[in-house]
Design a binder for these strands. Sequence first.
DNA 1: GCTCCCAATGTAATGTTATCACATGAGTTA
DNA 2: TAACTCATGTGATAACATTACATTGGGAGC
Lengths: 166, 166
Amino acid sequence: MHDAVASDPMAHDHDACIAAAIDRVEARCRVAGLQLTPVRRRVLEILLEEHRALGAYGILDRLRAEGLGSQPPVAYRALDFLMKHGFVHRIETLNAFVACTTGANAAPEDPHMPAFLICRACRRVIETTVPTARGRLETAAEGAGFAIEHAVREAEGVCATCRRAS
Amino acid sequence: MHDAVASDPMAHDHDACIAAAIDRVEARCRVAGLQLTPVRRRVLEILLEEHRALGAYGILDRLRAEGLGSQPPVAYRALDFLMKHGFVHRIETLNAFVACTTGANAAPEDPHMPAFLICRACRRVIETTVPTARGRLETAAEGAGFAIEHAVREAEGVCATCRRAS
DNA sequence: GCTCCCAATGTAATGTTATCACATGAGTTA
DNA sequence: TAACTCATGTGATAACATTACATTGGGAGC
Ligand SMILES: [Zn+2]
Ligand SMILES: [Zn+2]
Ligand SMILES: [Zn+2]
Ligand SMILES: [Zn+2]
């Protein structure tokens, strides 16, 4: 059961949140003809269960315990698939991975621009979506004649829950 | 000699650019009572010479060739020192390091907020400074009650020079 | 039926990046 | 001198990621 105080980000119905995310991904895969194989699906579930960043070897440990694979490529291949299609994001500052928590993977024609808030106290990762419109980074790039293809926005700090706790 | 076309970012007087950067750092160290030891100074010079991101082991190779150290901690300790004081930045998406190219390390009381434009063609890293004022990431964090302590902004793409070349 | 192809997986080995643990040496202070 | 701090030397190990090659299993076309 999920009995957390109202201010806790984990206070939501996490089982439903996981099920909904899986449903969205399954729908996307059906439409796009993608194969959500057992390993890929299980890796996604593991990340959804966490709501935090998990390293490839942490995921691999779980897969091993379940008899779903034992060598690094098993985890990395599944993660590559999930990232390629926007179901999972890589957190560069942690060398780790999180499940996409915005509903945006249901709307591939309007790709979202994720930004991540990483709590150094509870290691939870909050995904926020910033408008695709031009921000300061884009402005700076434009001024330099630089064509951005991919941008990384990650902030480390303390989340609301942990701030209240201290 | 530095004989590059006018549009090339390397067209500046690179020797002077390096000397000026070293001078700034030396001045900062004198004022703050920091020890710019031979290894630390050499690591900074190596990065300044490059004007691009270099991995810790790439730096270590150079140090080894010069008899300045052979084990990873030698490079990492020097980099830790240089980063701690803002003379060098870490590029998270490359697991690599660049010398700070803004004059901001001369003004520690007004810490700058660096953002990096990484060219995937020439691997050159352009450091730009974004205003410390609130941007979209800060706005999103504020809305979530999240206190940002450190933000990473890195964009991969193609620089002006490489775009013209293609 | 069949073969051919392709995507996914299994697995060993290796490569790359980063840290730990502990010993040594130089300079400073009590 | 003894105690302390800061920087360095060095071997070992941890953590993260990729390469290479063999194998499997399900269509597509015949
Ligand atoms: Zn949830
Ligand atoms: Zn937290
Ligand atoms: Zn220069
Ligand atoms: Zn370029």
